[in-house]
């Protein structure tokens, strides 16, 4: 029983880490309707930014979050303005090719600039590494904090989208582009903002996970596939869906890794992914058929 509870706890906490990465993806997916294959590479850039700030100014990764968020917002907004926007009128697959291209270009640029070695932040304070005991169970402090931050992020974004003028404009654009346009919403500007916001979430994610994971050029590919599964599972554009999907995948990952086999856990959650696509294509918390 104790092992089961420990596995459950590990899974839920892993879910927090997955959530903080997936929330940005679901925003972009749900609002701009672009499948952003470069999402993982933006995370990698965020990690390198945090790493560089840590090396040069000696700041804790959690402090480096603020500039990282600003940087990632600008990168995301720039990508929407200069790469996606000119292609908005084109067919969907053209945009996908564009994001795949950006992904490969960024990965190789990082390889050129930083080399293939793994690098990690200096963290003499130990904040965000280590672990704490909860009764007989153990939890990583970094993961606990990440989990709390992703809950706050979901809450904050939810409040923003429902209670501010800009947030309502974003939701209107997501629901019906042309209707929003007729209501006087500057759709292109909303898209730029939404893409930037989705990427800014990764700035937050990079700072939170930097004490736990080293960075290297292909770092993004480790998370991005799982993030796609989560976003489809939770429903495109659904924030709470992304959170619950993340926890679900985290728990499945943890339990399957123990009770089935560590190398088969991906098989298990990709089967869940397939089942979702077949039986509920709009995801657990999607708006239902016809929302596209």
């Amino acid at each position: 029983m104790e092992i089961f509870l420990q596995l459950l706890l590990n899974g839920i906490l892993l879910g927090g880490t997955l959530a903080i990465i997936s929330i940005g993806l679901t925003l972009i997916f749900g609002i701009v309707r672009v499948v952003n294959f470069a999402h993982g590479e933006f995370l990698m850039i965020g990690m390198y930014a945090v790493y560089l700030m840590n090396q040069h100014f000696g700041v804790h990764p959690y402090v480096a979050i603020i500039p990282a968020v600003a940087l990632l917002f600008m990168l995301g907004a720039g990508m929407q303005r200069f790469i996606i926007q000119p292609l908005l009128a084109a067919e969907g697959h053209i945009q996908i090719f564009a994001t795949v291209g950006v992904s490969i270009a960024l990965m190789n640029a990082a390889l050129m600039v930083f080399g293939a070695d793994v690098m990690t932040v200096n963290n003499p304070s130990g904040l965000g590494t280590g672990s704490v005991g909860i009764g007989p169970l153990r939890a990583s402090t970094g993961q606990l904090l990440t989990f709390a931050v992703s809950l706050a992020l979901v809450g904050g974004l939810h409040w923003f989208l429902h209670n501010t003028f800009l947030g309502r404009a974003v939701r209107a654009t997501a629901q019906h582009r042309n209707a929003a346009l007729l209501m006087g919403v500057n759709v292109n500007r909303i898209y730029i903002f939404a893409f930037g916001l989705g990427c800014a979430c990764l700035g937050l994610a990079s700072g939170m996970i930097a004490p736990q994971y080293p960075v290297f050029p292909t770092f993004g590919t480790f998370f991005v596939l799982t993030a796609f599964v989560i976003v489809v599972l939770g429903g495109l554009g659904s924030l709470s869906g992304a959170l619950i999907g993340s926890i679900l995948i985290g728990v499945v990952d943890s339990l399957a890794g123990y009770y089935i086999a560590p190398d088969l856990k991906e098989v298990v959650y990709f089967m869940i992914f397939l089942a979702i696509l077949i039986f509920r294509p709009t995801g657990l918390f999607g708006a239902g058929r016809g929302s596209e």
Binding site: L7, N10, L14, T17, Y213, T221, F222, F223, T226, D253, S254, L255, A256, G257, Y258, A261, P262, D263, K265, E266
Partner: peptide, 12 residues
């Protein structure tokens, strides 16, 4: 126990 080199969690 085999695992994927791309694993992000080996806790289980």
């Amino acid at each position: 126990l085999p695992y994927s080199a791309k694993a992000v969690d080996l806790s289980s």
